[in-house]
Amino acid sequence: MAVEIFTALMEEAQREGCISGVKLAPTVPVITHLLFADDCILLAKAKEEELYQSILILNRYTDASGQKINLEKSGIVFGQQVPIQTRVNIEEIMGMQTWEIPWVTGTLGKIEEQSANVDAAYSRSTAEGATAIVIRDNFGRLLTEESMRIRAHSSLAAEAEAMRRALILATNLNMEQILIESDNLPLVQAVKSKTYIGEVESIIRDIFLLAESLSNCGFTWVPREGNKVADGVAKCSLAGQLEEN
């Protein structure tokens, strides 16, 4: 009975234009979801309003059936044309990670998207800092890294410079798609919301200009434990334990 309610809710949402679904051919019905035993696939456009409608329906299904969605075993598959920042926003809304499925993109063995972990270390006593950028492909393989000693007036300035340096590196390497990952939440929030932080306004302006020059660029926050490599490289560089590259 609960499954029938779920199907009815999805069909109603599609009729009212709240969820688009997909059509495999012009003359066939729209498909909004597929059910396989205990699994379900939802089909929708990468729009926030459709996501919130899907969440509403899933919550109503949970209330009716007592079954809760296991987010750890759930994931999202995007079309190739969905921008990186849109993907990041959807992941945050849904609380799920992206699943990389080569047969969907048709790019097995081809690098489509890179992620750049950025971090910085800072010494207030010397007004010096060090930036670190670690770029990987979508399979997690290391592509390149960069570390650099800099002059900085604050830790935030050093973090912002690391983000700026990552975009310069991506531009120089002709990377078409790049996701910048930083553990500095205020900085990420400012960049994603297109706002400025006074002490690093000039750097953020550069970040906006560089991001606009790339065909597909996004920004996301990662916890410190997810940024350990870049953090370690920055600290070693500041301590003089690494050669700049």
Results as ranks from 00 to 15, higher is better:
206 D>S: 15
231 D>R: 02
31 I>Q: 07
129 G>P: 03
16 E>I: 09
152 A>F: 08
47 K>S: 08
126 T>M: 11
53 Q>M: 11
188 V>S: 03
83 P>V: 02
86 T>Y: 00
48 E>D: 12
227 N>M: 03
216 N>H: 00
166 A>Q: 03
89 N>M: 06
127 A>M: 10
136 R>K: 14
182 S>I: 04
242 L>D: 03
141 R>F: 07
156 L>D: 02
50 E>C: 12
212 E>T: 08
37 A>C: 08
150 I>V: 12
195 T>C: 01
160 A>L: 04
189 Q>E: 13
190 A>M: 10
140 G>M: 00
129 G>W: 01
151 R>L: 10
226 G>T: 00
49 E>D: 15
235 K>W: 01
51 L>N: 15
164 R>L: 07
164 R>T: 06
228 K>I: 00
108 L>E: 15
125 S>F: 07
73 K>Y: 04
180 I>N: 06
59 N>P: 09
122 Y>G: 06
94 M>Q: 03
110 K>N: 15
50 E>G: 09
182 S>A: 15
123 S>M: 07
197 I>T: 10
44 A>V: 07
113 E>V: 14
110 K>I: 13
233 V>N: 04
202 S>V: 02
10 M>G: 11
10 M>K: 14
176 E>H: 11
86 T>A: 08
230 A>L: 11
174 N>C: 10
191 V>I: 15
208 F>E: 09
191 V>S: 06
32 T>R: 03
18 C>L: 13
19 I>N: 13
210 L>N: 10
141 R>P: 03
101 I>E: 10
231 D>T: 02
178 I>K: 02
121 A>M: 03
79 G>V: 12
119 D>C: 00
121 A>V: 01
63 D>Q: 14
228 K>Q: 13
228 K>H: 09
199 E>I: 00
214 L>H: 04
122 Y>I: 08
93 I>D: 07
62 T>S: 13
217 C>E: 02
96 M>P: 05
196 Y>E: 08
109 G>S: 11
8 A>Y: 02
217 C>R: 00
178 I>Y: 02
27 T>W: 09
9 L>G: 01
233 V>S: 06
181 E>M: 04
68 K>Y: 12
75 G>A: 14
170 A>M: 02
150 I>M: 11
194 K>C: 14
211 A>S: 15
154 S>A: 01
188 V>T: 11
101 I>H: 08
69 I>W: 04
93 I>Q: 06
127 A>L: 12
141 R>I: 04
192 K>V: 12
